[in-house]
């Protein structure tokens, strides 16, 4: 059983993840802030994290840095519209050696499933 953590302050986004990943059989958890996300990550075990970039409180980049302090390997998909105000910070994090992928929004159901399966199952899975 693979576990997925979705960290996003927008309820609609959390909901869509739950709905669209339902058929994959993965177990999806959501957190509504960077702080809660880190707490959940520490307490659980996750194979993939979806992380929103623009959040109040700890934004996506700060959350990523904290996560990476705990776990350098877990795949993280940053969800962003690219012209995000935090995009520059993200580039910096990348330069600092923080590993992550970018999922460009808006994406539809099929794109999400493809991306998720791709990370969790490997290239042969889709």
């Amino acid at each position: 059983m693979k576990h997925i953590l979705v960290i996003d302050d927008d309820e609609a986004v959390r909901k869509l993840f739950l709905l669209s990943l339902e058929e994959t059989g993965y177990s999806v958890f959501t957190a509504n802030s960077g702080m809660d996300g880190i707490k959940a990550f520490k307490e659980g075990h996750y194979d993939l994290i979806f992380l929103d970039l623009k959040m109040p409180g700890m934004n996506g980049v700060e959350t990523l840095r904290e996560l990476r302090k705990i776990d350098r390997a877990v795949p993280v998909y940053i969800i962003t519209a690219f012209h995000d105000e935090f995009f520059a910070q993200l580039k910096k994090a990348e330069a600092d050696g923080m590993d992550f992928e970018v999922l460009r929004k808006p994406f539809d159901r099929r794109q999400l499933i493809t991306a998720t399966k791709g990370i969790l199952e490997g290239p042969t899975s889709y």
């Binding site: 609609a12 869509l16 669209s20």
Partner: peptide, 17 residues
């Protein structure tokens, strides 16, 4: 536009679901 991104995306997913 940025504000609209999330709701629109959510609506799309809901409809697709």
């Amino acid at each position: 536009a940025h504000e609209l991104n999330n709701p629109l995306m959510a609506m799309l997913h809901f409809a697709q679901y």
